[in-house]
Amino acid sequence: MPSDTALVSPARSARPASPGDRATPHALALFRIVIGLLFACHGASSLFGVLGATSLPGGAWPGWYAAVIQLVGGTLVLFGLGTRYAALVCSGSMAYAYFSVHQSEALWPLQNGGEPSAIYAWAFLLLAVTGSGSWAVDRLIANARGGRGEGASAPAGARREPSAI
């Protein structure tokens, strides 16, 4: 007798979209906006001495360059412009910050003060993988060109055609 998994064909296993599935792109967009705004504010505070921080000297390695990545990358992610690429750079920046600054102090982020770096690294990696969600400039540009936009998912049951290189 065949197993239960052998009786279910891939075409029949597709389920209709639930309310949670329809909310996912909007929740992802809110996540992207909040993470981008917080990251950009952190960069602005380090570069310009606003929001209660003192500014870093121009060109100081690695802090000043990290602040530029935070401001520019956070702003791009906030608006959903080049989200995947900007998020990947931001994630790498925070992973570098964690391993070069915090990891040598102690093993766990709670002990070494690296929680923000670790959280940002993983949050930006999530955005690099998932894309921008809805409400993104990338999506507006793609819609104007007749495409689907970055981070857009295909309708349930739709097949993606391989792209020609």
Rank of each mutant, 00 (worst) to 15 (best):
I141V: 15
G20I: 15
A144V: 09
Y85G: 01
W64M: 06
R145D: 14
A27G: 14
L7F: 14
I141E: 05
I35V: 13
G63Y: 02
T130D: 00
G59W: 01
A67H: 01
G133S: 02
Y98V: 04
G43L: 02
A23W: 13
L81E: 02
S3E: 09
H42T: 08
S100Y: 05
W135Q: 11
G92I: 07
A106R: 09
F48E: 10
P62I: 02
S55Q: 11
I69P: 07
L126E: 12
M1A: 14
V68P: 09
A67Q: 00
W135K: 08
T54L: 09
S9A: 15
G52D: 08
W61C: 05
P116S: 04
G74N: 00
V34T: 09
L51V: 12
I35L: 03
L76W: 05
L56C: 07
S117Y: 13
R84H: 11
L7S: 15
L76I: 04
C41Q: 12
V68S: 06
T83I: 13
I119D: 00
S132N: 01
L110V: 14
Q103M: 10
L125M: 14
C41E: 06
L81V: 05
A87S: 15
L110N: 13
S13F: 12
R148G: 06
Y65Q: 05
L88K: 03
G147R: 04
T24N: 01
G146H: 09
G82L: 06
R139M: 10
Y120M: 09
I35S: 02
W135M: 14
N112P: 14
V68C: 12
A11H: 11
L107V: 11
G73T: 02
A97S: 03
D21Y: 03
P19K: 07
V129N: 08
R145S: 13
A154E: 07
A66E: 00
V137E: 10
R139N: 12
A136S: 06
L78Y: 05
A40G: 03
S104N: 08
